[in-house]
Amino acid sequence: MISQLYALVAPFLDYGFMRRALVACLALSIGSGPIGVLLLLRRMSLVGDAMSHAVLPGAAIGFLFSGLSLWGLTLGGFAAGLAVAGVAGLVARHTMLKEDASFAGFYLTSLALGVLLVSMRGSNLDLLHILFGTILAVDDQALLLVASIASLSTLVLAFIYRPLVLECLDPGFLRAVGGRGQLYHLVFLVLVVLNLVASFQALGTLMAVGLMMLPAATARFWTIQVWSMCLTASVTAFLSGFIGLLLSYRFGLPSGPAIVLTAAGFYVLSIIVGRHGSLTARLPRRRNYRG
């Protein structure tokens, strides 16, 4: 028993890179969990996905200037993410295109552009690094960045939590009572981009939303309040990180996909046996109606 428990923590005790990866997962979970929940409740799941890809060309430009340096990639990615969020919002407001369609258009463009830019100077390995991240190579500096973003994001979210939740529930009401919904929406979008840039360090642009949306969708099946949903999402995200890292260590799997697939496992499990609105939660009620 003791030795089995020890096996669960041994890799983290033995190797610094595993510890750093785990701490990075913890920070990402705390930051991204609530953000994912609010994206989900605002019906913006795909927007988060699109924005994570939009980070790519910015990171690529950073890469062209400074190689795989932390600040180049981060600042470039942050700027590009913000720009795409802003432009897509403008296009949706001033043309007939709906917001999700305009986001889809922008993210395909940025994905292609990003891959092109990286390939101009880097090797395929660099491209893989940027697309899929390298959570096992997270250094202290990157860890500090991820942790700072998680802290900032949690603090800001605490400040704008009430109007943000109200705006999800009933945007017309908030505007009618003089709450500045648009302002909070903008702050929220900045937080989304910040968190995406953070998880980009660990999971790459293609899977940065993995620890954001999958745990949020999982939490929807277990909770009936926004705050408990955020908490559940963060815990699920961290568990996914922990189990995913262990699996990747034990079986020599790439760590990013192992983490995201573990999160996906939680999600599928919740779809089936979750407490609220899952497949099994709905079954007995239907029988009652018949009987």
Partner: peptide, 24 residues
């Protein structure tokens, strides 16, 4: 115009009416 499946308690939804007094 309102999402009725939103995860919120009835009491909290009603308390939102006090927005002008409680604000952010």
């Amino acid at each position: 115009e309102i999402d009725r499946s939103f995860p919120i308690m009835v009491g909290d939804a009603v308390a939102a009416g006090a927005w002008r007094r409680i604000g952010v």
